[in-house]
Design a protein around this nucleic acid. Structure first.
Length: 483
RNA sequence: CGGGACGUAGCGCAGUUUGGUAGCGCGCAGCGUUCGGGACGCUGAGGUCGCGGGUUCAAAUCCCGCCGUCCCGACCA
């Protein structure tokens, strides 16, 4: 279980944590997984935080649901889009005991069916904007899969908006990217960079793709969410036109944005350590675990149990970040305390309270922070009052840890040799000047396996020559090996 | 699709070279001793050895065919 120092060993550690912490397991169908209650609860916490923010933007978004199946001809309307997704489509050719006249695609994403529908919903500029999101599953026939990070079927949300003007759609694209940043940083305690993608990493059919990029504990990058400015491409392909204020017909402008259950994988890999998961309290299905340490005599057992029951109630009656504190007593009577300590750590529970008869007699209780391992002694009577502050501490501590780790593993390169050496020896993020040519980008990938993870949100002239070819740089790029 | 490895109990594996009663660790069930950092003893349950065919007195083991999984690469939230 030791956290590997070599990137190549990381998958084994990851697999082990996902399995032993009881988050998910492989299922029978190729590349798919069964998400178990503990793992699903983590997803729910992330999902709810996102959903709330979608609904509280100005103007707000609403949820809708579109079908799982997409008629093949519909998908084929947008050329770049269909070419991008063709290799990874699952197609239903038989149903009801017969071969279908027209195959049905299992959605890999829903732009096509949604924009076909929007063509009937939009006639006037007064119908705009459409600000809709759906929570759904999608299927992409990936060649290699890994629990949560890349599965054949995954859960996600996809926002699809239609706008009157280019400016408005552009703003929406960046607004939702920032919503992702907020949730991933504030709730998951994972710091991210927001940036533009290069043309080669762009979503098929998008004019511009933005992403949030996080660093994992093995120093590899994980694209954690994307927000696309789709221009008028889908409006043209699906005839979404409206009569404008000027009395003329116009094509609507589009955005789409999504995050998936991959975030759960990112959470595990951004915070995990030798002992297993480390969960930020905002995501933790159980925030506080109370471990009773039974005494020798029946009297002792009873008094400890009584004290724990009272403490549990007092903690559960308190709230943190607007919700009741999720507290549990590990009352499994067939396990020894040492096992329960390790189990609580493996599952990443932010705070553990140990109470035995010695504590009870001294009227105190020991609290252990999962993120740092620090132990504090609290008075038994006022212990519940300290929990909120401690949860704040863990939430902030994990974020600060991750920021420090990322900064320690971010480097600048001024030459190709330096880039190659940094990627090979140090790993992490390497920033340098780039001429904008896809050939230079491809050369770096071929020689180092590193790809450009992001460019700054605004084009920024680096004022230095491209570190690959030496021609004038037009952008500042950050390279990394990615998941 | 190219290169490599593997398929034996719920999980992790040994046994295959050299054919001869199906094994180990963890987990699981019962009982007892334990219990402040992953306890121990005893007893027990659990297996069409991936599938199909062949060779043989006898196949997890040898031969042929098929299926599946994992790892490295190309694809990707």
């Amino acid at each position: 279980m030791a956290l590997p120092t070599q990137a190549g060993d990381f998958p084994a550690w990851y697999q082990e944590v996902v399995r032993t912490a009881d988050l998910a397991e492989n299922s029978l169908a190729r590349g798919t997984m069964v998400i178990k209650p503990y793992g699903y609860a983590m997803w729910e916490a992330i999902r709810d935080a996102l959903d709330w923010r979608f609904k509280h933007t100005d103007p707000p978004h609403e949820n809708v649901y579109f079908p799982l199946f997409i008629p093949q001809r519909l998908l084929e309307r947008e050329k770049e889009h269909v070419e991008g997704f063709a290799p990874e489509l699952a197609v239903v050719t038989h149903a009801g005991g017969e071969e279908l006249g027209e195959p049905l695609i299992v959605r890999p994403t829903s732009e096509t069916i949604i924009w076909d529908t929007y063509s009937r919903w939009v006639q006037s500029y007064r119908d705009l904007p459409l600000l809709y999101n759906q929570w759904a599953n999608v299927v992409r026939w990936e060649l290699r899969t890994r629990l949560f990070l890349r599965t054949t079927e995954f859960l996600w949300q996809e926002g699809h908006t239609a706008h009157e003007t280019r400016e408005e759609a552009w703003e929406e694209t960046l607004r939702m990217l920032d919503v992702y940043r907020q949730v991933v940083e504030d709730v998951m305690a994972v710091p991210v960079h927001m940036g533009r993608k290069t043309a080669s990493e762009r979503f098929p059919g998008a004019d511009e793709t933005f992403a949030i990029e996080a660093m994992m504990r093995d120093r590899k990058a994980l694209q954690s969410g994307t927000s696309h400015f789709l221009g008028q491409n889908f409006a043209r392909a699906y005839d979404v036109t409206f009569l404008g204020r000027d009395g003329e017909q116009h094509h609507a402008y589009a955005t789409s944005w999504g995050v998936s259950t991959r975030l759960v994988g990112g959470l595990i890999m951004a915070h995990g350590d030798d002992k297993g998961l480390r969960l930020p309290p905002a995501v933790a299905p159980i925030q506080v675990m109370i471990v009773p340490i039974p005494g020798k005599t029946d009297d002792e057992v009873r008094s400890v149990q009584g004290a724990i029951a009272k403490l549990r109630e007092r903690i559960a009656a308190r709230s943190w970040r607007g919700a009741a504190i999720r507290v549990k007593v590990d009352d499994r009577d067939d396990l020894r305390p040492g096992y329960k300590f390790a189990d609580s750590e493996l599952r990443g529970i932010p705070l553990r309270l140990d109470l035995g008869s010695r504590d009870f007699q001294a009227n105190k209780i020991t609290v252990t922070r999962r993120d740092t391992g620090e132990k504090h002694e609290l008075g038994l009577d006022g212990a519940d009052g300290a929990i909120e502050g401690l949860l704040d501490g863990v939430q902030q501590g994990l974020f600060d840890d991750a920021v420090a780790f990322r900064e320690a593993n971010s480097h600048r390169a001024s030459s190709f040799d330096e880039l190659k050496q940094l990627v090979a020896d140090a790993g992490g993020f390497v920033t340098g000047s780039w001429c904008g040519d896809a050939a230079c980008e491809a050369q770096v990938k071929a020689e180092t396996k590193a790809t450009i993870r992001f460019l700054p949100l605004e084009v920024e002239e680096p004022g230095a020559p491209c570190i690959v070819c030496g021609r004038p740089g037009v952008d500042t790029a950050t390279w990394a090996i990615a998941y």
